[in-house]
């Protein structure tokens, strides 16, 4: 089992024929993901990577029955692409693109919510169900099948966490990179109950960072609704205030959004909080061996 995507999930790629889209779509196909086609306006009717190309998302959905879209279009076209996917009845859009304006994402997300489409990202590595389906840019080989679910704002910390979990002899059910922008799609609060309901997931790793209050919301939710053990790391304990640490949303504004505040809230909710990402694997092993 897994959450959101599995070996049967049919995926289209928006921005299929571009450099990034092509490279990563090919990697996904090699991994085993059912990429059933792609969308590039004005290239409809051609084939790319042996898959059909469509002019619009709606044509692609009608022809292929795809339910998920992986979005690789350039930042200035992201909102348009996401809204088109929502309009065409796509169920989940995984937005990899980095650098989309906040105002655009605000509108795109509001429209997606209205249409009942889930979104992941933007500016994220994507989602992977180990050894079944990879929709994104993560290195597939580090995700061995197992019983740990992973949610992370950071791409490389997703890899770091998954790698440690696998090195300890465990593995991953599904890993979701939710992105570190100020406005993102699915977050901890929506993903945690999915892992709680997934019979194969026995523990959850959540990796957060400074800025915003999603981790605080997650802590309150965990306290009430999550019975599986959660191991958490919050990046940016040593980050200076008022400085944007790489991700657009990773900034301590005034005294809000600090790592200390988030770690305290999670600890109070019974989460196993580690102070260094180097401790994630060991902590997971410890809670699973109990």
């Amino acid at each position: 089992m897994s959450i959101l995507v599995n070996k049967d999930t049919k995926v289209i790629v928006q921005g299929f024929t571009g450099k990034e889209g092509s490279f990563h779509a090919e990697q996904c196909i090699t991994y085993g993901t059912k990429i059933v086609g792609g969308v590039t306006p004005n290239k409809g009717g051609t084939t790319h990577l042996d898959k059909p190309v469509f002019n619009t998302v709606s044509e692609a959905v009608n022809a292929t029955g795809a339910t998920v879209s992986m979005v690789f279009v350039p930042p200035s076209f992201v909102a348009d692409a996401v809204m088109e996917a929502a309009d065409a009845g796509i169920e989940l859009a995984v937005i990899i693109t980095e650098g989309a304006p906040v105002r655009d994402m605000q509108a795109a997300k509001a429209y997606a919510v209205k249409k009942g489409m889930k979104t992941i990202g933007p500016n994220c590595p994507g989602i992977i169900t180990a050894e079944e389906c990879k929709i994104g840019i993560m290195p597939g080989m580090i995700f061995k099948k197992g019983n740990v679910g992973l949610i992370s704002k950071s791409g490389t910390l997703t890899y770091e966490g998954a790698n440690q979990v696998c090195n300890e002899g465990f593995g991953i059910t599904t890993a979701v990179g939710i992105g570190g922008d100020p406005i993102i799609g699915l977050s901890y609060k929506q993903l945690l109950p999915m892992f709680e309901a997934d019979p194969e997931t026995e523990a959850i790793v959540m990796i957060g960072e400074i800025g915003g209050d999603l981790e605080i919301q997650a802590a309150a939710f965990i306290k009430e609704h999550i019975s599986k053990p959660v191991v958490a790391f919050i990046a940016g304990q040593t980050a200076p205030k008022g400085k944007r640490m790489g991700h657009a949303g990773a900034i301590v504004s005034g005294s809000a959004g600090t790592a200390a505040e988030k770690m305290a809230a999670l600890e109070a909710a019974g989460v196993h909080v580690v102070k260094s990402p180097a401790e994630i694997g060991k902590k997971v092993a410890e809670v699973l061996k109990k």
């Binding site: 704002k153 960072e209 990046a235 304990q237 640490m245 790489g246 991700h247 990773a250 990402p277």
Partner: peptide, 27 residues
């Protein structure tokens, strides 16, 4: 972004870069 310590860091990815700073502090 410059900080005040003495261990320089070069990392790929913003999250891991912060995590590396935190680990240096942790040890």
């Amino acid at each position: 972004i410059k900080l005040d310590g003495n261990v320089g860091c070069m990392v790929n990815g913003a999250g891991l870069a912060m995590g590396t700073m935190d680990t240096i502090n942790y040890v």
